[in-house]
C-alpha cells in the first residue's frame, strides 16, 4: 500500500519530465527539419527532402567572412578568458587574501548582469575613448562574460588539487616552476581544455554584445540576425543553425569528456553538474 503511494508521484513526475523535454526540444527539432525541407517558406507541411540549402551556404561569400570572424573572436576570447579564469580560480582555490569574496563576486558579476547592460556600458566607454568598433572590441566584451564561466569550470579543477601534492613535489626537491609543470599542469589540463571549449562555444553563440560592439566586420550571430529579415534567406539560415548546433553539441561532449577525465585523474568522483555545483 505504502509503496503504491510512493510510486504514484514518481510516475507522474516521469510523465511530466518527458513533457518538459518535449517543450525543451520543440524548437530544436524544427531546425534540422526545415534545414532539409525542400521549400522556401518555413512552414508545415514539409514538402520534400533536400540538402540544397547547405549548398547555398557554401556559395554565400558574406557568410564565410562571418564564420572567419566568429572563429577569430571565439578563439581569442576562449584563450584570453581561460587564462584570466585560471589566474582567478587558482588564486581563489589556493590563497587567502584581503577582500577575496568581494573581488571574486565582482569578477563573477557579468554572470548575473543583463548582457545589454554590459554591452551598453562597454559601448559608452569605447565611444568616450574614441576607439573604433571592430572585432577587437567584440573580443573585449566576450572575454568579460566568458571569464566567469571559465572560473566556474576551472575552480573545480583547482579545488580538487590537494595542496599537499605541491608540497610533496617541493619536498622532493622540485622547484616552483617544476612543480607547476610536472604536477599542477597535468592535473588541471583537462579542465583547461574543457574551459577553452565552453568559452569558445559561448562566444560563438553570443549575439547581444556582438551586436552592439561589432564594427563593419560582423560575427556569425550578427550575420544571422541580418538574414532573419529576408524570408528567402531563411532556409539556408536553418541549415546554418543546424551546423552550429551539431558543432556546439560536439564541442560540449568533448568538454564534458575532458572534465570527467580531469576528475578521474585526481581520483575524485565527477559531479554531474560540473563547475556549477
Amino acid at each position: 500500500m505504502k509503496s503504491a503511494l510512493k510510486s504514484l508521484p514518481s510516475k507522474w513526475l516521469a510523465v511530466y519530465a518527458v513533457a518538459y523535454m518535449v517543450f525543451l526540444y520543440a524548437p530544436v527539432i524544427l531546425l534540422p527539419m526545415f534545414a532539409f525541407n525542400d521549400a522556401t517558406v518555413i512552414s508545415f507541411p514539409l514538402t520534400g527532402f533536400t540538402a540544397k540549402w547547405f549548398g547555398v551556404l557554401w556559395q554565400t561569400e558574406a557568410l564565410h567572412g562571418a564564420v572567419r570572424n566568429s572563429l577569430v573572436v571565439g578563439l581569442s576570447s576562449a584563450v584570453l578568458s581561460t587564462v584570466l579564469g585560471a589566474c582567478a580560480a587558482r588564486a581563489a582555490a589556493r590563497y587567502r587574501f584581503p577582500l577575496k569574496r568581494g573581488i571574486m563576486s565582482f569578477i563573477l558579476l557579468p554572470l548575473v548582469l543583463p548582457e545589454i547592460i554590459v554591452a551598453v556600458a562597454l559601448l559608452v566607454l569605447l565611444m568616450q575613448l574614441g576607439m573604433p568598433l571592430s572585432l577587437v572590441t567584440v573580443v573585449l566584451g566576450h572575454v568579460l562574460i566568458c571569464t566567469p564561466f571559465a572560473i566556474a569550470i576551472l575552480s573545480s579543477a583547482f579545488q580538487g588539487l590537494d595542496q599537499s601534492l605541491e608540497e610533496a613535489s617541493f619536498d622532493l626537491g622540485e622547484t616552483r616552476w617544476g612543480t607547476f609543470r610536472r604536477v599542477i599542469l597535468p592535473l588541471v589540463m583537462p579542465g583547461v581544455v574543457s574551459s577553452l571549449l565552453i568559452t569558445f562555444t559561448i562566444s560563438l553563440d553570443e549575439f547581444i554584445i556582438a551586436f552592439f560592439l561589432t564594427g563593419t566586420e560582423v560575427t556569425l550571430p550578427v550575420y544571422i540576425w541580418s538574414q532573419l529579415r529576408f524570408p528567402g534567406k531563411l532556409p539556408s539560415v536553418m541549415a546554418l543553425g543546424t551546423i552550429l548546433l551539431v558543432l556546439s553539441v560536439l564541442l560540449l561532449i568533448l568538454a564534458e569528456w575532458f572534465r570527467r577525465r580531469s576528475a578521474r585523474k585526481q581520483g575524485i568522483e565527477a559531479s554531474a553538474t560540473g563547475g556549477f555545483a
Binding site: D162, L165, E167, A168, D171
Partner: peptide, 19 residues
C-alpha cells in the same frame, strides 16, 4: 626552502601524485 633541505616528508594524506 623545502626543496633544498635534507629532509623528506610522508604527508598525512600521503599526497600520491594521482596522474
Amino acid at each position: 626552502p623545502a626543496n633544498r633541505r635534507p629532509t623528506n616528508m610522508v604527508f598525512q594524506s600521503y599526497a600520491i601524485f594521482p596522474h
